[in-house]
Design a protein around this nucleic acid. Structure first.
Lengths: 350, 350
DNA sequence: CATAGAACTTATAACGTTACAAATATTAGA
DNA sequence: TCTAATATTTGTAACGTTATAAGTTCTATG
């Protein structure tokens, strides 16, 4: 009677293969297998190939928990995402960019939510405390950002989206908001607008400063009057902005040009003005900062100045990896130029 | 000369405290400490308290890598988020809901990005392969969803947002899209609309079926003619929808009512019609499905039917936890009712 | 006072990996 | 052929935790 072998191609595979499995199959020691998989030059080329081949065949996947326990490295990069970032694919573009950089490096990307209205320190402390990652990327940076201080004190690698005004250095990627605001004013002037209003972020963010500087520089240079709404910011809810716009639209010196560094503000304002009987392209124009061309494509009156968020993600990833590789090296700092000729949609694909 | 003690409040804390540290401080064995921390009844109440107190004091945090290596449990729930979900805080609401459920359970939430145009199986396989989580939540479910099959075959706990049409059961949370579509038609009719058009998702999603059924049921019942645009779906890019709307607006039998189960479609259509000189509230009306009241608040002509995404997150989390606790128990299945009186914004806070 | 049982604590081993030091095999040179 | 150097492989221990089984101490009872 023939001996019946247990089924091989079972999806209920007996046990997950480990380095030990490979060691037994090859007759090598576990240590050798480990080093072969790491590509250690001290292991014979032939052995390395053999081990890798078998590992591939049996579907070996290193146990991350064990690796982490032994090395202390999580091989994870945490991207902290703020809900304010979520409109029209900001989050996804950023993720895509970072993931693109991380692909093939052995690092996993882990997105950590930052809750609406939550303390920005919370996710950072949580990650550091529980050793959830080897490096952190966060956005919405403040001039004296607590997270920067906290991470620097612990020599925890990070890269921020946005600068700080600390005396010391750290890796960051930022968009040239100063230039964006400056250029926006000029563009609106070219369209004959003179009462140009800018929607600014809450003033505790660094990019508030930059937008403000750029705006004011252009306003003064051109001899205009500044219009900065009080009580309204980029983070205001759309209904709030809508109400404000509707009200102001009916005043005699209502703004006829808007600089919107965010898409939602524009939508709210456009609706508010419209409610008051004012049409875009006729009674007012706007420049919108966006990571996609979407809005400008569905409305010819929208003037879009691009911020390449995917590229920002790539840069954030790159800068962070460099920082982690050479903890004592220089900090990578990159400033993105506002782009008028926006990259084609294809480049947004994964 | 007084002896100078080393600074205590140093952030460069010597070494991370472990159970061993606590064991040494209390004179107990590591095993006892471990079990005390787990709240094992076999450990004297007094001991448990003492251990917990010291753990607290020295800021002990269990090493997740070690726990995971030993127990095989990651204590992580993975939420796979699709970029199509991203408009106006869908993702954040879902995350908030799941996080709310998970708080205090010892489970961490890990958001995994699903790349635009990427294979839906990829993140699932990745998570299972690398043992990145103990349970998975995903959305955009299909009638015969590969992910469902894959996870079921491996008895990997999951809950889907959306139903399948498999013969076997699994945990899910779904929105009653059939009812939404049906009700939407009736509402538009009440406003005197007769040429009612619905924007459907790509037909490989389950909720395509439900929306279609609900829509057709109402259309037939009321003796209307159906308008389902070809080549246009909920996932079409806004510019594409815009162009379509602009074109169709100029035809003689242009739709005068739109059912938009997504906000972007509405924005694109409204702009397209407007470009053709047609005004909402006058020449057409629309019902939008949204997880926030935002759009309806900035435009009185928008009729909003709510989908409580945060609640969906809570339910998804709850159902998943139940599934994990009793692998052989019944599968939790929940269907959310379309809500007209939408929860106040406060409930969206973290 | 002995003893069974309860109450509580502990030693040992293991999860899968890798750093380190040590051992063995191979090769080149004398 | 022997030796020294080089190339390659291996054994041991450890990362921090927990399951198991085995201990110890205490208490109540006859």
């Amino acid at each position: 009677m023939p001996i019946r072998k247990p089924p091989i191609s079972s999806t209920h595979a007996a046990t997950k293969p480990t380095q030990k499995t490979i060691a037994e199959m090859t007759g090598l020691a576990v240590t050798t297998v480990s080093r072969a998989l790491q590509g250690d030059e001290k292991i014979a080329q032939a052995t390395r190939r053999r081990v890798r081949k078998i590992a591939e065949e049996i579907g070996y996947v290193p146990d991350r928990a064990a690796q982490r326990l032994r090395t202390g490295k999580t091989k994870v990069i945490s991207l902290i995402l703020d809900p304010h970032n979520e409109i029209l694919g900001f989050g996804n573009s950023l993720i895509t960019g970072v993931a693109h950089t991380l692909a093939g490096t052995g690092y996993h990307l882990n997105v950590t939510p930052q809750f609406l209205g939550g303390d920005p320190m919370e996710p950072v402390e949580y990650i550091v405390r529980n050793q959830l990652a080897d490096g952190i990327i966060f956005s919405r940076t403040r001039p004296f950002d607590e997270r920067v201080r906290f991470l620097r004190e612990r020599s925890f690698p990070f890269t921020s989206h946005g600068r700080t005004e600390f005396g010391y250095q750290h890796a960051f990627v930022d968009y040239d908001n100063e230039k964006f605001a400056y250029e926006s004013v000029l563009r609106l002037m070219q369209k004959g607008r003179r009462r140009i209003c800018i929607i600014l972020p809450p003033d505790h963010f660094t990019f508030y400063q930059h937008l403000n500087y750029g705006y004011m520089r252009a306003i003064r240079q051109e001899g205009l009057q500044s219009h900065i709404p009080e009580g309204i910011s980029l983070d205001s809810g759309m209904p709030e902005v809508f109400e404000w716009a509707r009200t102001i639209a009916e005043t005699t010196d209502a703004p006829d040009g808007f600089i919107c560094p965010g898409e939602t503000s524009f939508l709210a304002i456009a609706n508010g003005y419209r409610q008051a009987g004012k049409e875009r392209g006729v009674d007012f124009d706007a420049v919108v900062k966006s990571s996609s061309q979407t809005l400008s494509q569905i409305d010819p009156h929208i003037d879009n100045i691009g911020e390449d968020i995917r590229q920002a993600g790539i840069l954030l990833g790159t800068n962070l990896l460099k920082t982690m590789q050479q903890p004592d090296g220089p900090f990578e700092q990159t400033i993105q130029d506002p782009d008028i000729s926006f990259p084609s949609l294809d480049s947004f694909q994964n």
